[in-house]
Simulated assay, not measured.
Amino acid sequence: MLGDYSLGDLGSIFVMQGFAGLILFSVFLLMALGLAIIFGQMGVINMAHGEFMILGAYMTYLTSKLFETYFPALFPGYFFVAMIVAFLAAALLGAVVEWALISRLYKRPLDTMLATWGLSLILQQLYRSIFGAREVGVELPPWMLGSWQMTSTIEVPINGMFVMALTAVITAGVALLIYKSRLGRQVRAVVQNRVMAGAVGIDTQKVDRATFALGCGIAGIAGSAFTMVGSTGPTAGQLYIVDSFLVVVLGGAQSLIGTIASAFTISQSRSTLEFFTSGSMAQVATLIGVVVILMLRPQGLFATKVRR
C-alpha cells in the first residue's frame, strides 16, 4: 500500500491530509465545545446538538441570500454577520428548549437522551419542510475562494484556513469566558459542587439555562463554519454527533484541554486513514482506538475532579 509512493509523495500526502484533518478538527472542536459545556456541567446527553449546528448553517445560508439580494456591495463581509445570527438563533432556541424540556428532566439521563433524540427528529422534519430535502450550499465571498500554494505539490484552501482561524478565536473566547468571567466562575462552581454553589447564592437554574444556551450557540457557530467546507441538509448534523460525543468522552467531559486534544487526535487519525483505506474503515479503526483508550482510562484523557 505504501510501496507505491515515494518518500516525497508520502510527505506531501501526509501534509495535505494533515491540513484536511485540521479542517475536520475545527468542525469537531466547535461541535464538541458546546457538548462538553452542556454535558460536563448538566450531565445532559443532547442528541439534538447536531440540529442546533444545522440551524446555524441554515441561518448562514439565509443571511448569504439576504446580502446577495439586497446588499450586494456588502456581500464580501456577510459571513461575520451570519455567525452572529447563527449564534443568537441557536442560543435562543437552546434557552427555550432548556426551559420547556430539559429543566423538567434533570437527574433522568435516559429520559433526557430520548427527549432530545425526539427533538432532533422534529427539527430535522421542520428543516425538511422549510428548506426542502435537498442539500443547499452558500456562495463563498470572493476572498475565500482559491488556495494557497505552499509548494509545487501542496496547496491549502483559503476557506479551510479561515475555518481553522475562526476555531482558534472561538476556542480562546470560550476559555476566557470559562476561566475569567463571572459566568465562567459560576459554571465551574456548579460543576465542582452544585449543592454548595446553590448554598452560597448562585442561581444554579439560571446558570444551567445560560450554559445550555451557550453550548447550543457555539454549535450554531460550528454550523456557520460547516457551510464554508460542505453543503447543508436536514440530516447533516447527525453525521457529526457521534464523533462529537467521542471527542467529549475521550477528552474528559469537564476538560477544555482534553476536548481540544481528543478532537485533534480523532480528526487527524480519521483524515490520514481515509486516504489509505476508506471512510468507513477509517471510522471503524478510530472507534476501536477510542474504545481501547477508554478501557484503560475510563475517565478520559484529562479528567477534572468533581464532588458529588
Rank of each mutant, 00 (worst) to 15 (best):
V248M: 03
F275R: 10
L177R: 12
V85M: 13
F226Q: 06
I54V: 15
R188C: 12
A253Q: 09
Q268R: 03
R128V: 08
F302I: 03
M113D: 12
L239W: 13
F302H: 04
G132N: 02
M16T: 14
V187I: 15
M47H: 02
Y78V: 04
T171A: 13
F28Y: 15
T211W: 02
R188A: 11
G3A: 15
A285K: 01
I23C: 04
A222I: 04
G237N: 04
A48E: 01
M53A: 04
G217C: 09
M150E: 00
A20P: 05
L126F: 14
F79H: 04
M113N: 09
L88D: 01
Y106H: 09
P72Y: 06
M228N: 01
T286L: 05
Q299W: 05
A219Q: 04
A263E: 09
V85T: 13
L29T: 00
M161L: 14
F52G: 01
D9F: 00
D208Q: 13
R134P: 01
V156L: 15
S255H: 09
G258W: 08
V292S: 03
D243N: 14
I293L: 15
R307Q: 14
R182T: 07
Y58S: 04
W143L: 07
A57K: 06
R185M: 15
Q254T: 13
E155L: 13
L93A: 11
L92C: 12
T171V: 14
S269I: 15
P141W: 13
M295H: 09
L119T: 07
T265R: 00
M281K: 07
A303V: 13
Y61G: 00
G132V: 05
A172S: 15
E274C: 12
R182F: 02
S231P: 07
Q124P: 10
G21C: 05
M150W: 07
L30Y: 02
I170Y: 08
D111C: 02
L30R: 06
Y61A: 03
L301N: 02
V138D: 01
L301A: 01
F75V: 11
T69W: 15
M150C: 00
I202S: 09
L114Y: 11
L62S: 12
